[in-house]
Design a protein around this nucleic acid. Structure first.
Lengths: 122, 122
DNA sequence: TGCATGATTGCGTCATTGTGCAAATGATAG
DNA sequence: CTATCATTTGCACAATGACGCAATCATGCA
């Protein structure tokens, strides 16, 4: 590890690909940045079982249609699984996937901290 | 651990406080959900050193004033440290804080998964 | 076949936010 | 004191997104 490698510019860093780049995914955080969605996801994580849309709607103060849209958004981000049975649709938190994703990002951040300016390309 | 405790409704879960509730903080994710901000933060994490605003502005395609605002947002969310020296302001990623926060959330999620419907209040 | 129910979608509205430009602020050098 | 440089702030504009209501779709039941 040389001195020159530990003191690169942000511009150089931008071209220097690291796991952080892909794991720090704005699309994932976009799903989590809304208070109503965060509440819904927290409920589903704590329930730890598939829940129907109407059931989930009871835990927040917005219209069922809004809840439905939020659930679709969370599912699209990979945070929920959905299953249709009859006319009810159940959503369940993908808790394992979420915690693994968070840990992977934490690992990548720590990696950059320990070996700055990833020697992968500088 | 009884059966009745592992099958609560989302509404009950909402009233059941868990570390997930506070750690799944929309305010944090709001800071991370913008592509430009994510890029800036990734750069600072990879640099692993304090960088001036003008320096950071070189790594993304928006106006310096926009970068300045994004940096303020990230700092307000606790993701960056700022230090003023003369007329230049330097921002540095709080990588340790970020990775600790992510791991704490991952732990809370796993905890809910292993002991559903936190026995803390149900 | 008709009707009720759970979920989704279309649409209009309102609030928020990302952006660029210009002006202002703060600090250093001549 | 004035000019210059780094950063921030004011302002206007456009895009995005959350929301409620109503209509629609899909399924189950009489």
């Amino acid at each position: 590890m040389t001195q020159s490698c530990t003191n690169i510019s942000p511009k150089q860093a931008a071209q220097c690909c690291s796991p952080v780049d892909t794991l720090l995914d704005p699309e994932l955080f976009k799903a989590l940045c809304d208070p109503t969605r965060a509440l819904i996801l927290a409920c589903l994580i704590k329930c730890a079982r598939p829940c129907a849309v109407s059931e989930i709607a009871e835990c927040c103060a917005v219209d069922t249609s809004v809840v439905s849209r939020h659930l679709a958004t969370l599912a699209r981000a990979g945070l929920l699984d959905s299953a249709k049975q009859g006319r009810t649709v159940s959503y369940a938190a993908r808790a394992d996937h979420l915690s693994r994703t968070l840990r992977a990002l934490a690992d990548a951040v720590d990696q950059s901290r320990l070996s700055p300016a990833a020697q992968s390309c500088c």
